[in-house]
Write a protein that binds this DNA or RNA. Structure first.
Length: 565
RNA sequence: UGGGGGAUGGUCUAAUGGUAAGACAGCGGACUCUGACUCCGCUUAUCGAGGUUCGAGCCCUCGUCCCCCAGCCA
């Protein structure tokens, strides 16, 4: 009752699930907590799963417990072992491990079968011969009760024999199911004698041809949790209605432990779509280049885009856990990524849209080495040298023939600083006589300003980045932008979400110029290209000696605002 | 006009009967060898109506709005 708690003011308040866990630990209800992450191996993981992974593994870790990795593989018609591997890799990439605790619901098929027999013996399950169509019509509606199946009162012996027959492959697919015998009048449709076993004459990726009957999710999940001694079974909101069934199975079968199912709101992000079905459509319709397209918010896409795993974890911690349906703004994710990369990314110079600058008064054939910091706020990250010469590339947009007032970059007779280099002043412009396009600009440099400061104390407003022409490493850079133009591409059900795709979500630049230190970049290495953004060497297409960079995220840009006004 | 959930700034999250706080976004400013980073300031919120209470975002009553559920998917 009193307020003299010992929590430090800095401690982040616990979300409602961690609160429950803390209470259960304090009350002695549990001494060790065990959670689980239960993906179905029928697709790739996405950022929404990351929220669940961080919750389940995170809560376990924080409380010195365990989080089991469990594949919910009860529907062999949709599942493949290739997905199992990609899911494992993704979870590990996110920074979590399960140790010995790798499980499959299919590990429990024998036990699940035995439990089903028990249910039949208890008079709590029966074999039903109704067709799928008939079962649906018997189920009733939201406002009307269901009708009991004519097979509901079969004898135990008959049920046992029939169920065994199902197991032995004596009946055709769809001809019979095993149903829990609960209550056809329940206002909760999930309790109206739900199907718990169906016949599926399909080989399973792990059990092969051993089974031709497979248990349904509701029946399997609660029992798998109980078998593994899960204490807190965390799932998304749409399973709230299933909790009574979860509890019914465990109560009826008198399992030694009864995990508590707790539901939380799934993640929604603006400017993207999250459902497996829609992600699949984008892949199959070639709207993107695959599951790992860097524009996709699949874990593999995120990884390839260059989002650090630590940024994803931070993001998941930031957004919190609640029961309210919510839409997180994409900028929150981008901010987490920027924040992480700002801290860790070495700075380098790269020119994306090169414009040649000739420094007229710099001796031809001369080179020199200039020293640059790898991170302005972190001297411990060291320095590197960058070559300078008479011809350099600058960013095309850093020169304007007729610059507006607040444009601090190059223009005719304007002086700017070359980052870590010299002050240069533009003296003339070479144009294509026919098109009028600017081909190169001529500048003079002030030899006194080597390193970037003037002995006479004069200041320049702008500092621009550059790359020495003879030393430049040319490469491809891919600029990624949001995949959708609207916050919720799904909002209007009468319009296909793909109508909202951003036609400019990918821009490929083939003639970018990198400072030479970048030549040997390893796939996955990331940098801040100063004034341009954060970039990561592509995991698939980049190799040392022939780098290919993906733009992970832009830098915040207050110039665009000034430009507009 | 069945059942299950949920409503706090533009968006998330906190406040557990006692000063409505933080993050993102936005706006303004400072600083700057990255128009980055950092720093400072500002705008904006308890769904509504009653009630209990010295005191209500929190408790009670009645409303309103939103989401989920009729797979032999998970």
């Amino acid at each position: 009752m009193t307020d003299n708690n010992t929590t430090t003011p800095e401690a982040k308040p616990l979300d409602f699930i961690r609160q429950i866990i803390a209470d259960d630990l304090r009350s002695g209800k549990h001494h060790k907590i065990v959670t689980r992450f239960p993906p179905e191996p029928n697709g790739f993981l996405h950022i929404g799963h990351a929220k669940s992974i961080c919750l389940n593994f995170g809560a376990a870790l924080e409380n010195n417990g365990f989080c089991h990795m469990r594949f919910d593989d009860t529907n062999p018609s949709k599942e493949e072992s290739a997905y199992v591997e990609s899911i494992k890799r993704d979870v590990q990439w996110l920074g979590f491990g399960w140790g010995e605790n790798l499980f499959y619901a299919s590990d429990y098929f024998d036990q699940l079968y035995a439990f089903a027999l028990q249910l039949i013996n208890l008079g709590k399950a029966y074999v039903c011969d109704l067709s799928a169509e008939e079962i649906r019509s018997h189920r009733g509606t939201l406002t009307e009760p269901g009708i009991e199946s004519p097979y509901r009162n079969r004898t135990t012996e008959e049920n046992l024999a029939l169920f065994q027959g199902m197991k032995n492959g004596e009946f055709s697919e769809g001809s019979r199911v095993l149903r829990a015998r609960i209550d056809m009048f329940s206002p909760n449709l999930n309790m109206r004698d739900p199907v718990i076993y169906r016949i599926l004459k399909v080989a399973h990726h792990r059990t092969g041809d051993k089974w031709c009957i497979y248990p349904m999710y509701d029946y399997t999940h609660c029992l798998s949790d109980a078998i593994e001694g899960i204490t807190h079974s965390l799932c998304t909101l749409e399973f709230e209605d299933h909790r009574p069934l979860y509890d019914w199975c465990l109560d009826t079968l008198k399992t030694p432990c009864h995990p508590r199912q707790i539901e939380f709101a799934r993640l929604n992000l603006t400017y993207t779509v999250m459902s497996k079905r829609k992600i699949l459509q984008m892949v199959q319709g070639n709207y993107v280049e695959g599951w790992d397209d860097p524009r996709m918010l699949t874990i593999s896409g995120i990884r390839r885009r260059g989002y650090p795993a630590s940024a994803i974890r931070k993001f998941c911690a930031d957004i919190g856990i609640g029961k309210k349906e919510s839409w997180i703004d994409m900028s929150v994710l981008e901010n987490a990524v920027r924040d992480d990369m700002n801290n860790n990314a070495p700075r380098v110079m790269a020119v994306l849209n090169p414009l040649k600058v000739i420094i007229d008064n710099y001796p031809e054939g001369q080179n020199e080495e200039l020293t640059a910091q790898n991170h302005p706020q972190k001297p411990e990250m060291g320095t590197r040298t960058i070559p300078f010469s008479r011809e350099i590339f600058i960013e095309r947009e850093d020169f304007l023939e007729d610059p507006p007032k607040k444009f601090f970059r190059l223009g005719p007779d304007r002086e700017v600083r070359l980052r870590y280099g010299y002050f240069i002043r533009c003296v003339s412009v070479d144009k294509d006589p026919i098109t009028g396009e600017i081909i190169a600009i001529h500048c003079t440099y002030d030899p006194q300003t080597r390193g970037g400061s003037a002995p006479d104390g004069r200041k320049v407003k702008g500092t621009i980045h550059w790359v020495s022409v003879p030393h430049a490493v040319s490469c491809q850079v891919r600029l990624y932008d949001r995949l959708f133009l609207t916050e919720n591409p799904d909002a209007d059900k009468s319009v296909d979400f793909k109508e909202h795709l951003n036609p400019e979500s990918l821009t490929i630049l083939d003639n970018c110029m990198l400072e030479p230190s970048l030549a040997k970049t390893l796939p996955g290495e990331y940098f801040q290209f100063e004034r341009n953004g954060y970039f990561c060497a592509d995991l698939i297409n980049s190799q040392p000696g022939a780098p290919v960079f993906n733009r992970t995220v832009t830098l915040k840009d207050s110039w665009v605002k000034i430009e507009k006004s």
